[in-house]
Amino acid sequence: MPRLSYLKALNRAIGDEMERDPAVCVLGEDIGVAVTYATAGLLRRFGRDRVLDTPISEQAFTSFATGAAMAGMRPLIEFQIPALLFLAFEQIANQAHKFSLMTGGQTRVPVTYLLPGSGSRDSWAGQHSDHPYSLFAHVGVKTVVPATATDAYGLLVTAIRDDDPVVVFAPSGALGVREDVDLAGLAPVPLGSARIHRAGTDVTVVAVGHLVHDALAVADELAGTVSVEVFDPRSLHPFDWAGLAASLERTGRLVVVDDSNRSCGIGAEIVATAAEEMRLVAPPRRVTRPDGAVLPFARELDLACQPTRSQLRAAVEKSVGAG
């Protein structure tokens, strides 16, 4: 079977959807030369009418896509840098997201916002290292964080076909992930449907995005002493609460590993909902960035602010010890 990288999966998903649906178009900065690779080859295949290299005018082209969507197109916007979402937050959260309700259902805004390289890269410092997926889940924009190449393909296809705005975070920590896949078997993955990468009976580890791979590594390390179930929500809003409840029926213990700032991060919502509604025999725990973290430039400082495997392992062991 061919090896598929996460980045190639994103590229393939966009290309396949553009082939399938002439309403799909792509906007973004430097997408013609494809500096992120996600749009590689698209300009040559589909031409300038459907692959629009934009000026550096994020606020304008984000709502430009909203207008195009309201008039029948299905745009995908690539943002090179996660912090550009702060710049275009008004256009996404306060405009695109609100039009379905405010118009009494007269319109829909099928725009996909793709972030190839979210979270920390290698020392890109304070303004290029954020991972604001919780912010979008909080305001209610559909929010997706794929962990694997297959899911990157399937979730991006679903996002493009979805009739609402969807933000797709492709964590930089996952972009290099490769897997053997049957290309003919690639398929859409529904939103709100979690994936259990590894079944277990002692602790459920909910891992977001690239941290799924860290959770699997920790589960391996602990095999023989603790049976860890690795639960990948895949989409954070909507969230597969029924799937999490079923997992906790089996394990009764919960640890969330989440690359958000701790306060008001998605990990807080997961822990709170589990505490309110699900079976827990031990206090739930979170492994996250610190409260309100701004990632410093120096590599040691950058790494010190991100969740680590050793922190996750300690949290899992505490959870078992407490139960």
């Binding site: 410092a125 304070g126 303004q127 120096a298």
Partner: peptide, 10 residues
């Protein structure tokens, strides 16, 4: 200059 907190871009 920034005690290693900013880097090239800051």
């Amino acid at each position: 200059l920034n005690q290693g907190r900013g880097g090239s871009m800051h």
